[in-house]
Design a protein around this nucleic acid. Structure first.
Lengths: 297, 297
DNA sequence: GTCGCTCTATAAAAATATCTATAGATATTA
DNA sequence: TAATATCTATAGATATTTTTATAGAGCGAC
């Protein structure tokens, strides 16, 4: 009896993630199972694929020679799944959305609640991450992005622009006078991010060239940053539509042109005819075009 | 949980062989197992891959859209196995030989007996068939052929030419006088083959243009044809070296030039460094170059 | 040093898949 | 018309695989 193709999948996952444990999590198996798959495969091939170290599994030379083909199989398998998903006509089923923290954490849940009431047969998962998840490897079915998705074979739709403005909480301005010109911002608490350079770039774009060190409050979490603004810690950029939902938010320097963000929807070309995906895409495109209805904060 | 890659393999096999039963034989599984694989796959995908008829399983349109990717996976998987086999360094193991009826049935067993005495760790299988088996899909590790193998990615070695001559059994010539010129053959019983045109072509090559109907004894089996010659039924071509092992065989028209056959060995490039395969290849190349030692007849 | 984290390896219990055997249905052959 | 192929579908017994739970070893932080 030959070895199973599943063992090759396991092999590829272990090679990719570097350890049995990490691979097992991604495969939805347990670590002993993954370990046994590798053991069996090695036994049948007659040579070791990995060296077992304390810090995981490292490919041997021979293992490295084989991993390319396993990778190709993975490509074909994911394409198989994608195409199959595109051929699928049932309404019932699951859709995975990928979105960044702000959209996925604050905005989408409200919209999805509405959608689910209309379509109880469709189950929806949201993957909240600021990393652009890979639609090609089917980490998600639909991506909601703040920039134009660039991968090939993607069907993308620009929904609209998202105008930004600089905002601070009313309470903040009881302590400091609101800035009247761009230079005044230098003496204010500016809320940006730690490692993610997108807001810093935005500040530069409006003519304020500050170094990361000059931000008094820094946090990687977009949500925490927004909370900080609402808590009156300082001034920072917000979606205008979102700020409009919160009383007590005061826009400063409204004449300053903060470059708008763009709102994009994307799905893989192979799945664009899937009814569920169409349904969700159309719904999102429709609702996201409207002003923000509610932020679940 | 996702579906198994093994189910995709099963899907591809069923699509390829047209029925659960045929696929199960090729996969080394049973028919109910193969059927359940397809059922599970269809259930997870949400649409049928096959229409079940009395005469097997026929791909639906959607199934046909998916079979290409499954086929690619099969390619990658067999390549995986081939490359793995090439990386393998153990002596112990199995080697599959592919050869035609004459070589595989009469000559190789004697050589292999000798080889096995020297190398008891290596198990050898012979696939005897006049169809050139596919080294790319790993039906065999080594092919012994009477013509130059043409597939790509093959490592081929010409061992030698095999001179042919026309022979008859002594007892035959007690009944009919031996032919003295080519034309005399017309009144003799010529032993050729039924559907396989190779011998007919050979007769044409030496200047004797006879139609298949004029062969009194016809048989698809090369071995039976040789037996017929040895039984004194008529005249036919034999390997000179083989005929030399049998007393009572008389060559006729030795001046007639019968085109020689060629003897080739081939293995896939991916496995050429496999020690077992090298060992067998070298042994065969060595022994096949010598005159025939024994025919197991 | 010790706690907490990573990782691999192993043995018994639980879940799952496979096989054997059989039935039913249709076409081909005698 | 009966016999013999082909094929798929289904149920119970058997094996195999997976999981759960546990141990052991190295590394970094406090």
């Amino acid at each position: 009896m030959q070895h199973s193709w599943d063992h090759i999948r396991t092999f590829q996952a272990v090679a990719d993630h570097g350890s049995l444990l990490a691979a097992s999590r991604h495969l939805g198996l347990t670590q002993p199972t993954v370990g046994r798959h590798i053991d069996l495969l090695e036994e049948r091939l007659g040579f070791p694929l990995f060296t077992r170290g304390r810090d995981g599994m490292q490919l041997t030379d021979k293992g490295a020679d084989l991993v390319a083909m396993a990778g190709e199989m993975l490509c074909n398998a994911t394409q198989f799944d994608r195409v199959a998903s595109g051929l699928e006509e049932r309404i019932k089923g699951t859709i995975r959305l990928s979105a960044n923290e702000i959209l996925g954490g604050l905005l989408l849940p409200g919209l999805i609640a509405e959608f689910m009431a209309e379509h109880p047969m469709i189950e929806i998962e949201i993957e909240v991450s600021n990393e652009a998840s890979n639609l090609l490897s089917r980490d998600a079915d639909i991506a909601v992005r703040m920039f134009r998705p660039t991968q090939n074979d993607l069907v993308v739709r620009k929904v609209r622009d998202i105008p930004l403005g600089l905002f601070g909480h009313k309470s903040y301005f009881t302590r400091r006078p609101a800035p009247e010109a761009l230079e005044d911002l230098r003496v204010h608490v500016l809320l940006g991010q730690d490692r993610n350079p997108s807001l810093i770039t935005a500040y530069r774009a409006i003519g304020l060239d500050t170094e990361p060190g000059s931000y008094q409050f820094r946090c990687d979490s977009n949500i925490a940053t927004i909370s900080a603004i609402r808590a009156g810690i300082g001034i920072g950029p917000l979606h205008k539509g979102m700020a409009a939902l919160w009383p007590d938010m005061v826009q400063v320097l409204p004449e300053v042109e903060v470059p708008s963000l763009e709102l994009w929807l994307a799905c893989h070309a192979d799945v664009r005819h899937n009814k569920r995906i169409r349904l969700v895409m159309d719904f999102l495109a429709d609702r996201l075009r409207e002003p923000y209805a509610a932020c679940l904060f």
